[in-house]
Computed example of a mutant assay.
Amino acid sequence: MAPQIVFVTGNENKLKEVKMILSPSEGEEEKFTLINQNIDLDEMQGADLEFIALSKCKQAVAELPKGQPVFVEDTALCFDEFNGLPGAYIKWFVKSMGVDKIVQMLAGFSNKSAQAVTTIAYADSEGQFHTFQGITRGKIVNPRGPQTFGWDCIFQPDEGSGVTYAEMPKSEKNNISQRGRAFAKFKQFLYAPK
């Protein structure tokens, strides 16, 4: 039986997306089973996205049985005009303000450019930590598409056909999104011959 890897998340949409990205390619043998656990981790403060993800992963390791492979994923939305803010705090901005007010934050500025960044921190069964990061450039736009997944409806990637993440089919989004890119690196690492 394939070993289990724990993904620390309580977000069902995120779990579905990650399972899709990490599933074996055609003809590839399944090397692991992905399960999730909703562990309440401290939200680290800071601008260093790798530090935040590693800190969360270390907390998760302490909560799980010794030797249990585990990973956390942290996603940031960084506005160029605000020198990278809201960054790692975007989840809390969306929760407390909503996407319409986030768009309004940039109303007085011509620069709507942003980058979406996903950082994965993984602890293997030996207790070694590894990080993987994906970045997608784009711009902040008025909400378009379903408002069911964070800030997807206000981020229009530079690549693609001029639509927001929320307007894209999942397979198209996964090919160009910061999460898709970070997890592609992670998948390559997990499926590499050991």
Rank of each mutant, 00 (worst) to 15 (best):
M1G: 13
A2N: 12
P3M: 15
Q4H: 10
V6N: 04
T9H: 02
G10N: 06
N11R: 03
E12S: 10
E12F: 06
E12A: 14
K14F: 10
K19W: 00
M20F: 12
P24W: 05
S25F: 09
E29A: 11
E29K: 12
T33F: 06
I35V: 04
N36W: 05
N38C: 07
I39V: 06
D40T: 13
D40R: 13
D42R: 14
E43L: 00
M44Q: 12
G46V: 11
A47N: 08
A47E: 10
D48F: 03
L54I: 08
L54H: 00
S55R: 08
S55H: 12
K56Q: 02
C57Q: 00
Q59D: 03
A60F: 01
V61L: 01
A62N: 07
F71G: 04
D74I: 08
D74C: 01
T75N: 02
L77W: 04
D80C: 07
D80V: 11
N83D: 10
G84K: 05
P86C: 04
Y89Q: 06
K91L: 01
K91E: 01
V94D: 02
K95Y: 08
K95W: 06
S96G: 08
V99P: 04
M105Q: 07
L106K: 02
N111M: 01
A114Q: 00
Q115E: 13
A116Y: 06
V117C: 11
A121S: 01
Y122L: 08
Y122G: 06
A123N: 13
A123D: 03
F129D: 11
Q133W: 01
I135G: 02
R137M: 11
R137P: 00
G138C: 03
V141E: 01
G145A: 15
Q147W: 08
G150H: 09
D152A: 11
C153Y: 05
C153G: 04
F155C: 14
Q156D: 01
G160Q: 02
T164H: 02
Y165N: 03
A166N: 04
E167I: 11
E167S: 01
M168C: 01
K170L: 15
E172C: 02
E172W: 06
N174I: 11
N174L: 15
I176E: 04
S177A: 06
Q178D: 02
Q178V: 03
A182S: 11
Q188E: 10
F189V: 12
Y191R: 12
K194N: 12
